[in-house]
Design a binder for these strands. Sequence first.
DNA 1: ATGAGTGCAAATAGTTTGCAAGCTG
DNA 2: CAGCTTGCAAACTATTTGCACTCAT
Lengths: 138, 138
Amino acid sequence: MSNLVEESLEKLRALGLRVTDQRRAILSALVRSEAPKSAEETHAALPVDTCDPVTAYRCLEQFEKAGVVERGVRENGTKVYCLSHGHEHHHHLTCRKCGIAEKIDLCMGPELEKAAEGFGYTEVSHVMEVFGLCPSCA
Amino acid sequence: MSNLVEESLEKLRALGLRVTDQRRAILSALVRSEAPKSAEETHAALPVDTCDPVTAYRCLEQFEKAGVVERGVRENGTKVYCLSHGHEHHHHLTCRKCGIAEKIDLCMGPELEKAAEGFGYTEVSHVMEVFGLCPSCA
DNA sequence: ATGAGTGCAAATAGTTTGCAAGCTG
DNA sequence: CAGCTTGCAAACTATTTGCACTCAT
């Protein structure tokens, strides 16, 4: 069992949330996954009968609030989740065809925040996803 | 009638697409709109009985393919459209609460493309949306 | 024991598709 | 008049909600 999973579970416990087999399995699936996954895909990656799809939706939502996963958006609008490795905010380069993804470190967070503050905006956040055709699909 | 509308219609005509009252109305609504709109919202902004909601979906999809509108994604995943002013690619800073949006010029397109090419990816595109609380909603 | 978490069924929201009829170029 | 467009109805996909039951703490 990856200690990334245990680390995340600990974070949940600290927030008064509970640790269940389902949550352990979901986090474990995210750790195994190279690419960010939607709630459905995450559920599909679980051993059969691990839990109801609804539970995957609910857990991922909780996980996001708890800060143990980050949420992104696909080109078509579906929400995807991935573990927040350490605390570094990051983005992904996703292949439009096969769905494989690479981690990208580029991020203009600070610039965006500054620009937004220029407009008087607060609580600034952003979503960025990069898409392309990976070498094997091109 | 804004010439932005006529300009866009011309672009459609050039591609062999047809110009109808519905399309004119939809483009006109986008011109009037300060913030990017979803297909539903666009339809709602039209005079009653201008067209079926389905037509709004279909037209916006066509418009995007034709390059007269750009597509973005909301924090929650809904697709939104706005006219491609001139040819400059741009982003938006949207208020999470009231939905008003500002145009932002910041864009790391070139950097992203370079990074993606480093991974061997081609046909690179990206989606970026910035959210916050505007001064009046804060 | 107590409230968070889960499963099941059903409801939604947003968007897409099939098909016959209408209109543009 | 060919074929792009539209309207209407219906299908879909992704996600959310209500409720009774279960389980972690």
